[in-house]
Design a protein around this nucleic acid. Sequence first.
DNA 1: AGGCTAACCAAGCAAGCGCTAGTGTAAATG
DNA 2: CATTTACACTAGCGCTTGCTTGGTTAGCCT
Lengths: 195, 195
Amino acid sequence: MNVVNDSPRRQELIRVAAQLFVQEGFDRTTVRMLAQQMGIKSGSLFHHFRDKQEILCAVIEEGTQNALAMAREALAQCDNDAQMRLHAMARAHLQTLLTDRNAHVVALYEWRRLDGDSRDHLGHLRDAYEQIWQEVIGEALEAGLIRGDKLLLSRFVLGALNWTVRWYDPDGVQSPETLASELIGMLGAPAKTPA
Amino acid sequence: MNVVNDSPRRQELIRVAAQLFVQEGFDRTTVRMLAQQMGIKSGSLFHHFRDKQEILCAVIEEGTQNALAMAREALAQCDNDAQMRLHAMARAHLQTLLTDRNAHVVALYEWRRLDGDSRDHLGHLRDAYEQIWQEVIGEALEAGLIRGDKLLLSRFVLGALNWTVRWYDPDGVQSPETLASELIGMLGAPAKTPA
DNA sequence: AGGCTAACCAAGCAAGCGCTAGTGTAAATG
DNA sequence: CATTTACACTAGCGCTTGCTTGGTTAGCCT
């Protein structure tokens, strides 16, 4: 049992695991299935991960880190216009949900299968992400673009956005761009896109 | 293996199963755990249910039927005022989410563990429920209370509402009533409650 | 050439899983 | 009274699970 922390092999394992966890669910995905999908034997997995839990943790961390980075980048490329920042956040969220779809679905559905320590660690990451949302929504409130309670608004908006993984068809006609516009349009603010 | 369809014993089993499925997840809940919680032996369970899958199906059906009934009742006690009907739907949804919390959480999280037949059967039930939502939202659109695409609106709204099971605290200050008002208020329509 | 290491394999253990077969029993039913 | 029904029990079969152990391979560095 060696467990290296960052290798291309491990990255690949995480990717394949994410896909399997979505297809079958965490509990129904056996180490043998994952191993076979990688063309190795089940025992060899434990050279890369301490146990099955660690694989789940790695998958979710991957997705959450990306979402966080994407949100920060999206905001950095924005003026201080509250409307545009709100729109950028929604767009970034939907884009992450698309590009890292598997990881995010796992995060949404298998969160409770995490043990205490992992949940703690990943919980902080998620909190940081939601914090950003609350700030941007706070700005939009001050600018009078939307109305309601800041905390409630962010929860409702995140709920609506996360729910998209249930029905959104990446090959369909709707782009994350238009979806974001529609959502914000419903909140009482007319759509406005960055120049 | 006898399998009776409606007995008080079976109802109780469904209730306890729902709670366990929420606590542990469907896959991690063993027939032995459920049996012990009921004070019987694991083999005795299969007098009431054909197999473990059927328990899951029963739990979800219970919740969905109740939601459907509650929505219809809520609408029946409404005038034809589109605003009030919208509000009634949101309130009913949140109330169901509270009273049948376990069953609904199971429906949201363990849907994919259903086999093909159950998924088919329960899918129709769920479709009927979402159909009602779309109609009410359609009315609200015609009345000019909200704006956006009918299908998208219902998906976003349902997403926001269902997401509440993640953060809503039944012992907190917010009642389903106020939550419903807040949500609809965000959509651009001022809150209005039935007389 | 020799040593080191990441990556893998073969084999299997101990525990736990869903489910079945066959039986017992007390209450309801004819 | 005899029979059926509802519910539970005992005992265990056959299988899968996550994970361990001890050893092998191939490539790299010096």
